[in-house]
């Protein structure tokens, strides 16, 4: 290990802990940390800091309905099989008493054994290669898990959009642009039981450091439906369940610009609005 390398990696540890490095940089850090006690100790300390940040918001009491919703959703989800041991020295043996399939000639078995041994020797001749393979497999598994998660998320959004559009209580909301967004057009569909779907076109770029937030105003009170997701070229979309607390009856749907992350109540100028 050279001091240059130690210094370079040491300077990357903060970003590693914050999850800001690319995959290659991350691998460099992990390789170095396995060999360097000083960096390993620094990283352990940084990880505790990250955990402290995760614990820093005050715990809140979740609404009772959420528990029911979460547990109901689990009942329909299959669980992933346990990860198989990755140690190349472990060879799975047939269970005690299991019968080995008959019918293969011993010569074939011997040839197969030679091929398997050859493959095994090639695969495991280098510990470094094996580690890389294991890393790649784990990485691929993590990526596959993440992709599945995203697909489920998109599928959930599509389901919600269909359920809003086909709800018997759905009403279209005629939206029109205000302020500097008079050229903007938007279509909104509101179902008090299913939620809100809004698609906006030709929106002006929000002022620096601002984003668009969508509100459902019912009984004179505004409720955040969420942030308008940017779809590129002035296009924005939000598909969201109904905000809790909206009074039944007439509603107004509005889009305002707000600070990043949005606010619990609108503070910025109304850019789009429409009422039922």
């Amino acid at each position: 290990m050279t001091m240059d390398r130690h210094d370079t990696i040491g300077a990357m540890l903060d970003e590693y802990a914050l999850g800001q490095l690319s995959q290659d940089e991350r691998r460099d850090v992990e390789t170095h940390v396995r060999e360097c006690d000083v960096c390993a100790a620094d990283l352990r300390e940084l990880t505790i800091v990250m955990e402290g940040l995760a614990h820093s918001p005050d715990a809140v009491t979740p609404p009772p309905a959420l528990r029911q919703r979460v547990l109901a959703s689990l009942a329909t989800q299959p669980q992933e099989p346990a990860r198989k041991p990755v140690d190349g020295n472990v060879v799975a043996m047939p269970p005690k008493g299991a019968k080995i399939r008959r019918g293969l000639h011993p010569a074939w078995l011997a040839a197969a054994a030679v091929i398997i041994l050859g493959l095994a020797a090639a695969l495991y001749s280098s510990n470094a290669t094996r580690r890389l393979l294991v890393d790649d497999v784990q990485e691929a598994q993590a990526e596959a898990g993440d992709l599945r998660e995203r697909l489920e998320q998109f599928a959930g959004q599509a389901d919600l959009a269909v359920s809003i559009l086909t709800a018997t209580d759905m009403q279209p909301v005629a939206m029109s642009g205000k302020e500097n967004a008079t050229a903007s057009t938007a279509r909104a569909y509101w179902s008090p039981t299913r939620g809100l779907l809004i698609v906006a076109n030709d929106l002006p770029v929000p002022p620096p450091g601002r984003i668009y937030q969508v509100w459902v105003i019912g009984g004179g009170k505004p409720f955040s439906a969420g942030l308008l997701g940017e779809q590129g070229a002035g296009r924005g979309m939000l598909i969201a369940p109904p905000p809790s607390g909206v009074a039944p009856g007439a509603v107004t749907v509005a889009v305002t610009d707000e600070p990043p992350g949005g606010l619990p109540a609108p503070s910025g100028a109304i850019r789009l609005a429409g009422s039922i």
Binding site: S73, L74, P78, Q79
Partner: peptide
Amino acid sequence: VQEVFSQAWRTATR
């Protein structure tokens, strides 16, 4: 929260 407990449920074996 729902996603977190779903993922925990699915991957608890790991």
